[in-house]
């Protein structure tokens, strides 16, 4: 059994490297994106193998799904050159390749040599989980022990989405061709299901794999589908409304931080209510993540209104 595990891991890890290489050798951009998405899914599979189901979910949703959708949307806008232009001259490629290979070799040797001396915070994290307000260790880390990181990270998302939102191109317009009847039917049925699963993801994140990031990615999937659907109502939203939506997560997080100051420290939850605080922050972040990623999708596709001075 152990042997079978080893064979599987060996094949998968080799497949990952090969697939990564193939992705960057593709002749056309579209093939490269499709390969990248498949590659992302395989990475997610490998993460299940090394006991990181939270991350596998996120990688499948964000690393493969959202990134792929963004790249495909951008590709459509960039006008689909059939093939990539010829690569850089060998005088540049060769030293870079050799340097990178040397780095890879060095890191591999060091990892093999030092593999057997693990160090980490596993024990400390697990010892503090009862006080954290979340039974899921990853959620406890990102929304309690290291919530300052997550606060700034939501800030990253906000700043990036805002920049994309401001950068509206002149080739704005309505999304693509009219959707077919099957897509319309699919969208009508899927919308409530998407919402249900999103809410469930946030809720379950307190105990099991799931949480704001996965749920937000899912929500942005719904957002992208809606934009492609018969009535892309998010496109007609006023810019002020969109700005509020983008800000919701970061703003709530900051408000919580400021409010919790009463307890003597930044981002210290009162112990009995930690769970509630985490849930409030997660819900706000989920909505903002969903909206941000949807805005990014529309921005990459070039669908945002041309005039940044449009009525607010």
């Amino acid at each position: 059994m152990l042997y079978a595990d080893f064979i599987f891991d060996l094949i998968l890890s080799i497949a990952l490297v090969v697939l990564g290489m193939i992705t960057l050798q593709q002749k056309t951009p579209r093939e490269a994106v499709v390969q990248l998405m498949i590659f992302g899914l395989l990475v997610a599979l490998s993460w299940i193998r090394i006991d990181a189901p939270d991350l596998a979910l996120t990688e499948a949703a964000i690393g493969s799904g959202v990134t792929g959708a963004l790249l495909l949307a951008a590709l459509r806008r960039l006008g689909l050159q059939q093939t990539f232009p010829p690569p850089a001259p060998a005088a540049i490629r060769l030293p870079v390749t050799l340097g990178c290979a040397a780095l890879g070799l060095l890191l591999s040797l060091i990892l093999i040599q030092s593999w057997d001396e693990p160090a980490g915070l596993t024990d400390i994290v697990y010892a503090h989980i009862p006080q954290s307000g979340s039974a899921n260790p990853v959620t406890a880390v990102i929304l309690n022990f290291r919530s300052f990181d997550t606060l700034l990270e939501i800030g990253v998302l906000l700043v990036a989405a805002l920049s994309v939102y401001t950068l509206s191109g002149p080739a704005a317009g309505t999304p693509v061709r009219p959707p077919g009847p099957i897509f319309i039917l699919y969208l009508r049925w899927m919308t409530p299901i998407f919402w249900l699963v999103t809410l469930y993801m946030v809720w379950i994140g307190g105990r099991a794999p799931g949480g704001a990031f996965q749920a937000g990615a899912l929500l942005s999937g719904l957002g992208a589908l809606t934009l492609l659907g018969p009535s892309p109502w998010p496109m007609r939203l006023r810019r002020r409304v969109v700005r509020w939506g983008l800000t919701l997560g970061f703003g709530m997080f900051l408000l919580a931080a400021a409010w919790l100051w009463r307890y003597g420290n930044l981002l210290t939850y009162p112990q009995d209510h930690a769970k509630t605080w985490i849930l409030i922050i997660e819900v706000a972040c989920t909505l903002s993540i969903g909206i941000s990623l949807t805005v990014m999708f529309a921005g990459c596709a070039g669908w945002l209104h041309e005039d940044p001075e449009a009525v607010t």
Binding site: R146, F148, D149, L152, E153, V159, S163, T166
Partner: peptide, 30 residues
């Protein structure tokens, strides 16, 4: 972010904050 980077002692927090000011920097240039 800049103030945070002058204060923080956490290596990963430095990463997040650096990315925050980089992305904000890109937005400021554009």
């Amino acid at each position: 972010g800049i103030n945070s980077l002058f204060l923080t002692l956490d290596l990963f927090n430095i990463y997040v904050t650096l990315e925050l000011i980089s992305i904000a920097g890109t937005g400021l240039i554009l």
